[in-house]
Simulated scan of single mutants.
Amino acid sequence: MNLAFLASHGGSAARHLTQACRDGELDAVPVALVSNNSRSPALEWAREEGLETAHLSSAKYPDPDELDAAIFQFLQDADADLLILSGYMRELGPRVLGAFAGRVLNIHPSLLPRHGGRGMYGDRVHRAVLEAGDTQSGATVHLVTAGIDEGPRLAQEEVPVRPGDTLETLKARVQAIEGGLMLRAVREVVAEHRADVQMTESTP
């Protein structure tokens, strides 16, 4: 499968998965990255990696439908099969979600459905975990749908919330597992896709 990424800042998931492809740990091909931030480190990194890149944002396309269409066209031209949200801080439009239904993955820094939904991202999630007095946190890989953090969950991994944890210590513990968790989830999706293709090819 061809992987495309959408990132707003550093793009850590994109970097981790691309390296896994380069090392032969993931049977997929990274092909493209979209960013809504022209100054994002992810965009510069993707160019250096030889990926197709595009800066597509509401500043360039104030009409949400036009932005949705532009992202869709870029991904289609890049021949993308699977989309990975790598810290992408914007909602995808209906055209992209429809065209890639069941093939858009995101990782959220909590054990969904806890601490998910609109406005829950980054440090806000870890702060909510601490304020709630949770004894466990972690990360969740889920399919992206029109509802914020509401898509089917594909994989979860827990980490303990320890006495005396601060936002930074909890954040670091969660981030340490995110790359491996996303890699496992993408591997499963790729394997399922391969099995479906083989079944289709063998059917008379």
Rank of each mutant, 00 (worst) to 15 (best):
P113Y: 14
L112G: 11
L105H: 09
L112S: 12
Y121S: 06
L111K: 11
G138L: 13
R118I: 04
R118H: 08
P109E: 15
T135L: 09
A128R: 02
R124C: 00
Q136K: 13
P113V: 14
I107F: 11
H108W: 15
V144T: 07
I107C: 09
L143W: 09
R124H: 13
A139R: 02
L130M: 04
D134A: 08
R114N: 12
I107K: 08
T140Y: 04
D134T: 01
G119A: 12
D123T: 10
V129F: 02
P113F: 14
H142K: 08
V125P: 07
T145S: 09
L143S: 05
T145F: 03
H142F: 15
R103N: 10
L105N: 13
A132R: 03
R124S: 03
I148S: 03
P109N: 15
P113T: 14
H108I: 10
M120I: 02
A146D: 07
L130V: 04
V141C: 13
A132E: 05
I107L: 15
V125F: 07
L130D: 02
D123M: 04
G133L: 00
A146F: 05
T135C: 02
R127H: 03
T140C: 08
V129Y: 01
T135R: 12
A139G: 04
R127G: 00
A128S: 14
H126C: 01
F100A: 05
V144W: 04
H126D: 01
G147E: 15
S137Q: 06
G147W: 01
G116M: 13
H115T: 09
T140H: 04
A128T: 04
V141K: 12
I107P: 07
L105I: 06
T140A: 04
R118M: 04
R124M: 01
A139W: 01
L111Y: 11
G122K: 11
D134W: 02
G122F: 08
G122A: 11
V129G: 00
I107Y: 09
L111T: 12
F100G: 07
A132F: 02
Q136F: 03
Q136W: 08
L105T: 07
L105A: 10
A101T: 14
A101C: 10
R127A: 12
A101F: 10
L105V: 14
L105D: 09
N106T: 12
T135P: 00
T140I: 06
L143A: 07
A146T: 10
S137Y: 08
R103V: 05
R118P: 01
G147L: 08
R114S: 14
G119T: 12
G119K: 07
L111C: 12
H142V: 08
G133Q: 00
I107W: 07
D123C: 00
P113E: 14
V104Q: 14
R114T: 02
L112K: 11
V104L: 15
H108R: 14
G119F: 12
V129L: 03
T145W: 03
L112Y: 10
D123V: 09
R127S: 03
T140D: 06
I107T: 15
H115Q: 10
R118L: 06
T135A: 12
Y121W: 13
N106M: 09
G117W: 11
A139Q: 02
G117S: 10
V144P: 06
A132T: 02
Q136V: 06
T140N: 04
L130R: 01
V104F: 14
V125M: 04
P109I: 14
R124I: 01
